[in-house]
């Protein structure tokens, strides 16, 4: 890292955490143009923990989590770093070994339940398919599929197993997707905006379901979301991403109470606060840079109200801000101008 100050420590140790379920270090992902869409991303997820990954569209949060599944879109590739899942690095892993991990160790649910279900296949068969791939017998797989459908709160699971996705409402579809994801008891569930397309009361039901399943099974969940409300409700630790990098990381309460990166502070100020007055919302000037068009120094510097001279030339690493909090910013919050 350029010009790291000797007085502050990096917030994330350079070595992977042996106790973590998922330990990502120095992850770099390139898009077809060769530019980096994700760069130097490091974080840990411990067993049973809930991590929130927040950021606006194009910040690299989805790519980061897709790389854990090794399901990056064509042309997009892991160009550096390590992704330790249960101690094994998935970055160089051959496809065959990956298939064994997907579903059983780590599973993912997406924003649009319709595209993650095969419209021509019965729900029960889709769930059983995952089990069959892992060596279950046909009848065992069918019984297990029905059991899981019941577990995710789908009424009359026997009958639902024979239904096609289009016969389900949006909320029920997302439940079916969750059933598909959880049927092999993964230790880590990656939830990529699974409730964004749902109505609030249905979103709440789905969130409630995931929380309950997480508690029952002791699995870790990563919520990828742009919704700071969901983060505040569900998540114990959070990661704020900006322009493909981690801008801030820390316990949710600390980050909300005392944001240490001006971007986090801007995001929080952009939201209307319930129960308070109706002053103008805080605006962040400009827009995030595109991959390959990052300015020198800190990627947030052109929009940053706190920028100092150094920000234009030196890229800040994730610096320790105490209370388990880290921010990629040269200016500590106590030195911010109002």
């Amino acid at each position: 890292m350029t010009g790291e100050q000797p007085t502050v420590d990096a917030a994330v140790p350079a070595e992977p955490d042996p106790d973590a379920l998922l330990s990502v270090r120095g992850l770099r992902i390139t898009v077809p143009s060769g530019a980096a869409a994700v760069e130097d991303v490091s974080f840990d997820v411990h067993p049973g923990e809930t991590l929130g990954v927040v950021g606006e569209s194009g910040c690299g949060k989805t790519l980061t989590m897709l790389s854990v599944m090794r399901l990056l879109p064509p042309g997009t590739a892991i160009a550096g770093g390590s992704i330790l899942l249960g101690g094994e690095d998935v970055a160089p892993m051959p496809e065959k070994q990956l298939r064994r991990l997907r579903g059983s160790k780590v599973a993912m649910i997406y924003q649009d339940p319709m595209t993650s279900l095969n419209p021509l296949m019965r729900i029960g068969d889709q769930i059983a398919e995952g089990l069959r791939a892992h060596g279950w017998s046909r009848s065992d797989a069918r019984d297990k599929a029905i059991e899981v459908l019941g577990e995710v709160g789908i009424p009359k699971p026997q009958r639902a197993a024979r239904a096609f996705p289009h016969e389900f409402s949006g909320g029920m579809r997302q439940r079916a997707v969750i059933a598909c994801a959880l049927v092999l008891d993964p230790e880590l569930l990656i939830a990529d905006e699974p409730t964004t397309a749902l109505d609030p009361t249905i979103q709440q039901q789905v969130i409630d379901l995931v929380v309950q399943l997480q508690r029952d099974r002791g699995m870790a969940v990563v919520w990828v979301t742009h919704d700071l409300g969901i983060v505040a409700r569900l998540v114990s630790r959070m990661l704020v991403m900006y322009a493909g990098r981690v801008a801030e990381a820390g316990p949710t309460r600390e980050v909300f109470r005392r944001p240490s990166h001006p971007y986090t502070s801007g995001l929080l100020g952009a939201l209307p606060s319930p129960g308070a007055g109706r002053e103008d919302l805080i605006q962040m000037p400009g827009a995030p840079p595109q991959p390959g068009q990052h300015p020198a120094g800190c990627p947030f510097q052109p929009r940053c109200p706190q920028a100092i001279e150094r920000c234009a030339t030196d890229l800040p690493p994730l610096l320790d801000r105490g209370r388990d909090q880290g921010a990629a910013c040269w200016v500590p919050p106590e030195d911010w101008s109002a």
Binding site: P200, T201, I207, D208, L228, I230, A232, L234, R257, P274
Partner: peptide, 19 residues
């Protein structure tokens, strides 16, 4: 109740049982 408030302290005190 369904809409989460972007404030962890307020959220902690809420009864967020879904309808």
């Amino acid at each position: 109740t369904a809409v989460p408030i972007p404030d962890p302290e307020l959220e902690a005190g809420r009864d967020a049982r879904p309808v």
